[in-house]
């Protein structure tokens, strides 16, 4: 059954201090986590309040979400899929990371004939545009914001998500053409997959992870992380519901440690300049093929 948001409601001040926050590199609060009488309230300021209420039977939590009046139900649904689902997935022992991914032909993957490469990074770090750029040159995207991994037969299989990219106006025009019609230049727009931006709807093994640097003026560089470096670089891109739940954090750390040993991880730096993206894409493909 498809999740649906509740009617809009204003975000009233909360009586509790948040026990956790997601903060952007610029210091902007992206989300606050509060303990409420009825469960855990996750507030995305000026966007949506989600209440995760514990269940006695069935799924661990019931989820209700109220878009704020200045937001809309579409934003609530996007946040449900791109934040709440992966948070709950990790809470239940899954392996979800914040990132995009594309499929690459790879004969060494006998079962699938293709593999996935993933791009992890902070919000507005260029993950989706990079995935779109690879899709545009024939490497279909698998997901734009959530990496969902299932460990089967010793491999991490990356699950395809929704067949749409959420793009700001400048990225949409870069990927689809300067005459692309944009409804709202200030917010991300849903762009459905198609001939220009193909989507792959089958799970494939994850072969490499690129973690995008935060210096948007950095020169192009791809450098392999040691396994130890990879573990600490991967962890911040997890979705964690309760940072005070030590047992679950320990278990998640162990799963991430396994991932860091089984999948090659690279630091990817590049200048965020649309004109330079073809060179970045070529460098990623060269690096992948020469590994």
């Amino acid at each position: 059954m498809q999740w649906k948001p509740e009617p809009p409601r204003a975000q009233q001040p909360l009586p509790t201090e948040p026990y956790d926050r997601w903060v952007s590199p610029e210091g902007e609060c992206m989300a606050e986590f509060h303990r409420a009488t009825a469960g855990i309230l996750i507030r995305f300021p000026k966007q949506v309040d989600f209440l995760l209420s514990p269940n006695e039977d069935g799924p661990e939590f019931s989820i209700a979400g109220w878009p704020s009046p200045e937001s809309d139900s579409k934003t609530a649904i996007n946040l449900y899929h791109n934040a709440i689902e992966p948070i709950l997935g990790n809470h239940s022992g899954g392996l979800f990371l914040h990132g995009s991914a594309v499929q690459i032909e790879d004969d060494s993957c006998a079962a699938s004939g293709a593999a996935a490469i993933a791009f992890l990074g902070l919000s507005r770090g260029g993950k989706t545009t990079l995935a779109g750029s690879l899709a545009r040159v024939g490497h279909p995207f698998l997901t734009e914001d959530v990496i969902d991994l299932r460990l089967e037969e010793g491999r991490y299989w990356l699950q395809p998500k929704r067949s749409k990219l959420r793009l700001f106006a400048d990225s949409a025009r870069f990927l689809l053409g300067s005459d692309t019609v944009i409804e709202d230049a200030e917010t991300k727009q849903d762009v459905e997959a198609g001939e220009t931006l193909p989507f792959a709807d089958i799970s494939v093994p994850l072969r490499q992870i690129y973690i995008l640097g935060t210096d948007h003026a950095a020169a192009l560089s791809i450098k392999r992380f040691s396994m130890q470096e990879a573990l600490s670089a991967l962890m911040p891109h997890s979705f964690i519901l309760d940072v005070e739940d030590r047992e679950r954090l320990r278990a998640h750390f162990a799963r991430m440690a396994d991932l860091s040993q089984d999948v090659e991880c690279y630091a990817l730096d590049f200048t965020r300049d649309y004109a330079d993206l073809p060179r970045v894409v070529a460098a990623i493909l060269d690096q992948y093929r020469s590994r």
Partner: peptide
């Protein structure tokens, strides 16, 4: 929390 990774111990 500690975990051996690639022959070294990583602490979080």
């Amino acid at each position: 929390v500690a975990r051996e990774v690639g022959g070294e111990l990583v602490l979080l």
